[in-house]
Every structure is written in C-alpha cells, then in structure tokens.
Design a protein around this nucleic acid. Structure first.
Lengths: 201, 201
DNA sequence: CCGCTACTATGACACTCGTCATAATCGCGG
DNA sequence: CCGCGATTATGACGAGTGTCATAGTAGCGG
C-alpha cells in the first residue's frame, strides 16, 4: 500500500518488514528473496539473521502482520474522512484506495496478505496464522464502523467479511485484467446492500 | 479442483496440465517445480520440454486456462442441477463446491487462477493473460445463467463479477482462517441481493 | 531391415535461494 | 584504552530451480 516508492520507518528492522511487504505484494512470497528485501530496504544483508533469527518465515509473518495493522489503521482514517457516514461510502473508500493505486502505478501490486495465503508453501505455517490475524485486525475496525453507522451488531461482522472478501476478490480479477472494472463494479453493486443494513431509529 | 487425488486425462500432456493446476493451487506457482509436475502426473520428465517447449510459462498458462474451462463447465452443471433457478441458489452451489472440499481435505488448496495472479513474477506475463481469459471464461456462463433467470442483461455481467470476486475473496479468508465461515457468510449475505435483481414479468 | 518421427531418459549447466560461520566494526560504559 | 554487546560484512555451502544437450528407445511406413 502507500506510495510504495520510498522506504519509511526509523530502524533497519522496520524498514525491512515494510520492504518485505512491498515486495511480497508485487511478486509473491516465493519470488521475494531475502537479499532483495535487504537491498530494497537499504539495510545490510548481515542484519537479516540478526533481526530475524527465525529466517524468512519470521520476516514474512511480520510483514503480513504489519499489513494487517496498516489496513486497520487505514480503515480508521477512511471512517474519519467520510462526508456522510454510510456503509457504502466506507466501502467505496476502501475500493478507491486500490483504483487510485492502479491509476498511479498500474496493476503491478496486490495485497500482501493474499499473497501469503496463496504462497503458503513458501511462507510456512506461521505466515498463514499471521494472515488470519491480519484479516481479523482488518475486520475489527470495519465491523465497528458499521455498528456505529447503525448496522445491527449481529450483521456487522458478516458484512465486514463480505466487504473484505469482495475487495480481495475484485482485486484479483482487476490485476488479471489490468483494469479497475471489477473493483468499481463491486463497489457499485454492493453499496445499496450495505446501506440497506442500517437500522432506522 | 475435483477429487484432486487421482490424475485423469488420457495423454501425458493433459495429465501434466492437470497436475500443474493441482500443485499450483496448493503451493503457488513458485513452489511448483516442473519436476514435481511430472512426478505428480506420473509422466516422464523428458516429456516436459517435448510437450511444453515454451517452458514453465507455457505450462502454467495452460494450467490456468484449463482451470478457467473447468470452472465454466462446472457452472453449467450447477445451473442444470438447481432445484429452482434462483441466482442465490447458483451462488450457493458455487460456494458449496469449496466448503465441501474444505470439509473433505482441509483448507490446503485454493484457486489456481488466483495463485497465478498473485505469483505473477514467477508465472510471467503469459500467465496473467491466461488468468484474465480464465476469469472471462468463468464469468460468461454465470452471466448467461443470470439472464436466463430473469436478471436484466445490463446487470448480469456486473453481478457475475461480484459473485466471482466474492467467492475468490472469501476463499482467501477461509484459507487463512482454516474455516469455511467466510464462505458461508458471503453466500448468506449476498443471496438476497442476487435474487432481488431478477425482474418480475 | 532401414529410416524416420515421436517420445523418453539422463546428466549436466548456470543460477538462485535460504542459511550458516566467521570475522570485522561500531558505540559506549568503566 | 579496554571490554563487551550490538550490529554489520563477507564468503561459503548445500539444496533447489529451469533449461539445455545428448543419447536412447519405441512404433510404424516402406
């Protein structure tokens, strides 16, 4: 996510985690080498085994967890910046994050969490657990935002899952087609359903 | 997809394509070696360069195309077997295909098309094109089924994209969580929306 | 039997990967 | 300056990869 060009973060460790997420979401876990991560983060290669004694599995897991926290933080910012707090508006903002990125830099990158799930053979079991945690961390603020907007709490979790799934799936299709069509279509079709779930009061 | 244990197909070439799809959807493109494919297909290793002179890229692309044709064929079978032809019933059948597989063999495998899109670095440009074609081949019968059920043709394509995206995304979440929850949730939440799109006549 | 084509067998090549071993360097407290 | 832990540097190793070269074996028309 983010501008993707620079490498923020204070310590070399954080930079490597960030770079790992960036590279993973582009080419997948298997295609992302440890040497590449160090180079992308402008970090010394020797630091890899120092900061990540668990090896690649640890680095990947932490990159995925970072992505989950990032997505959660991002949802909070979306909610705060909505003109009117409708579920469809939140969903549209989530989708627009990706359409904007496509417009800016092409369909070259996807979601690092999805990459970790698909590449589970290269990523190891720890990465799968981290992916589940990342999805949970992402779903929590979405669900809470929905309840704040008036969605019954019984349905909020389900709709949050639906929103995340729709975004991830549409993102896959959009990357394959090199076109934002799937993303915009999903946003347009799902919006009314989401707004219809808010209870009148 | 399918039972995944045996390797059907008449010629060695078809068996290798099938095996490639099977292995890709488990561990991703990068983790699937050519030697593994030949072994899984019980095909001689020397046949690889004979049948696929284009190398791994050709094999992966063909596996993805095969997956697209398989999904399309499967949709046709779903439509034919529906008790009553409602869009929600078709969607439920698409989802049940995955929940059944999870119940039978765990959350070890996903969609090979999704794997090819994520692992685009290992798969090459040809695989991405093949993935787009596979999604298109999959969407066509879904869209046609929707129009046959009474959905206005203007919305049928959009809803087909939504259905595919929701399945793919929920499949990702379900694999991460090792639980069919996301799949069943999506089926339950999206059903009414789909049925509401059929025009009264 | 010959010749030809389709297919298979096998080993090697060049390369990359993750990981480890070992040593050098830095930054400080004492 | 010494010592010591934290960090970095560098090279090597073994296992894997995809791909190629070369030879071998069927199977069949003539």
């Amino acid at each position: 996510m983010a501008a993707a060009g620079e490498v923020p973060g204070r310590g070399p460790r954080e930079r490597m985690v960030f770079s790992a997420a960036q590279l993973i979401r582009r080419g997948g876990v298997g295609a992302t080498g440890m040497r590449d991560v160090a180079a992308h983060a402008r970090a010394p290669r020797g630091s890899l085994q120092h900061y990540f004694p668990g090896g690649k599995e640890e680095l990947v897991a932490e990159a995925v967890e970072w992505a989950g926290r990032y997505a959660a933080r991002r949802v909070g910012r979306f909610v705060a910046g909505l003109p009117e707090p409708k579920p469809s508006a939140l969903f549209a903002a989530m989708v627009r994050q990706w359409t904007d990125e496509f417009a800016a830099q092409g369909a070259t990158a996807g979601c690092p969490v999805a990459a970790a799930v698909v590449d589970c053979a290269d990523a190891g079991e720890a990465a799968r657990t981290a992916a589940a945690a990342a999805f949970a961390a992402w779903a929590a603020p979405v669900s809470r935002a929905l309840t704040d907007m008036g969605v019954p709490s019984a349905r909020a979790d389900a709709l949050a899952t639906l929103m995340m799934g729709a975004v991830e799936g549409a993102l896959l299709i959009a990357r394959a087609e090199r076109d934002t069509r799937a993303l915009t279509v999903v946003a347009h079709e799902l919006g009314p359903l989401l707004d219809a779930a808010v209870e009148r009061r």
